[in-house]
Simulated scan of single mutants.
Amino acid sequence: MIRHIVFFTVPDRADLDEVRAGLSILTENPHARLIEIGTNLKTDPLGSEVDFVVYGEFDDEAALAAYKAHPLYQASIDRVRPLREMRIAADYETERATRTPLQVS
């Protein structure tokens, strides 16, 4: 499984809703196993620059490539790119395909 994580900053606070709406387009892309759009809570005192996080899970590299080739991906880019400042992305492979709840004793 491939995990895809992207961080965004939005310099103009007035554009936050529009950027969130543009990122939300990604949730309709049929090639992702899971897509979440999150607003940073900004609770970390050492770094709160990031405004939004996109988290995605894909069966394999082919599914991730199909996601990026889908017209909804480009529609999101067209809407968000003019309004965002920073974009940092990372993809990594993992064996674990499901989330395991944290065990607290």
Score class of each variant (00 low, 15 high):
Phe52Asp: 03
Tyr67Asp: 00
Asp60Val: 04
Val54Ala: 09
Arg20Leu: 10
Ser24Asp: 12
Glu49Tyr: 07
Glu18Asn: 09
Pro30Ile: 01
Arg96Ile: 11
Asn29Cys: 04
Ala69Val: 03
Arg96Pro: 03
Ala63Gln: 02
Thr9Arg: 09
Ile35Ser: 00
Asp51Val: 06
Val19Pro: 08
Arg13Thr: 11
Thr9Ala: 05
His31Ser: 11
Val50His: 04
Glu61Thr: 14
Pro82His: 04
Thr43Met: 10
Glu36Lys: 08
Pro101Arg: 07
Glu36Phe: 03
Thr94Gln: 11
Tyr73His: 15
Glu57Arg: 15
Pro101Phe: 03
Ala62Phe: 04
Asn29Arg: 08
Arg84Glu: 15
Ser105Tyr: 13
His31Asp: 10
Glu36Gly: 01
Asn29Ser: 09
Pro101Ala: 04
Pro82Trp: 02
Glu57Phe: 07
Leu72Cys: 03
Phe52Gln: 03
Leu16Tyr: 12
Phe58Pro: 01
Ile77Cys: 11
Glu95Lys: 13
Ala66Arg: 11
Arg33Cys: 04
Asn40Leu: 01
Val19Phe: 02
Ala21Glu: 15
Val10Trp: 04
His70Cys: 09
Val53Gln: 10
Gly22His: 06
Val6Asn: 04
Glu57Gln: 14
Ala21Gly: 07
Val53Glu: 10
Thr27His: 02
Thr98Trp: 10
Arg13Ile: 05
Gln103Phe: 11
Asp51Leu: 06
His31Gln: 06
Ile37Pro: 00
Met86Glu: 15
Gly38Met: 09
Phe58His: 02
Phe58Cys: 01
Arg79Asp: 05
Val50Thr: 15
Thr43Lys: 10
Met1Trp: 06
Thr98Gly: 11
Ile37Arg: 00
Phe52Ser: 02
